[in-house]
Amino acid sequence: MPSRQIYIVDDDSVAALITQRGLQTMLDGQSTVLVTSSPNAAWLACATDHVDLLIVDPNPQISATLSLLRAVRAFRPHIPLLVLTAYDTPGLRAKMRELGVVHYVAKPIDLRDLLPVVYAALAVNPPTSDPPLATISLKHPSGSP
């Protein structure tokens, strides 16, 4: 089975490292998890390399991450996007919804809860049959704004 390539874009290097180490460990060596703090580097990888999943923390203060998401949606729509953010707000959720992001989780999530979401984003069955409960639905709910 060929190795999957996952890219993490996070301006918090420690958080990015933990995500990378955790996923690398838990995905049982079937994936290569790479980290970058630069949205430009991530876009270069998406444009020229094989990327199976892009995990992004879109800091609302940094517009480059939003541009990256827009570019991937427009020019590499086959690459699944997973937003893993420390800046969860209804506004950010709305923005992600508009960009067509389906997989959205808020920090501080446990890695064991993040794993099923990653499997779902990769569209592969996880080793266990647990559903990805940690995903925050970006569909229009009828209650909370």
């Binding site: 918090d12 420690v14 958080a15 490292l17 933990i18 995500t19 180490r21 955790g22 460990t25 420390a86 800046y87 969860d88 707000t89 808020a106 920090k107 501080p108 999530i109 446990d110 890695l111 064991r112």
Partner: peptide, 21 residues
């Protein structure tokens, strides 16, 4: 409170999951 919460989320995420690993 919200801005403080957002700033804490990243280190908290790293700390919890470091312990998990």
């Amino acid at each position: 409170s919200a801005s403080v919460a957002h700033e804490i989320n990243n280190p908290l995420y790293a700390a919890r999951n470091s312990l998990y690993l």
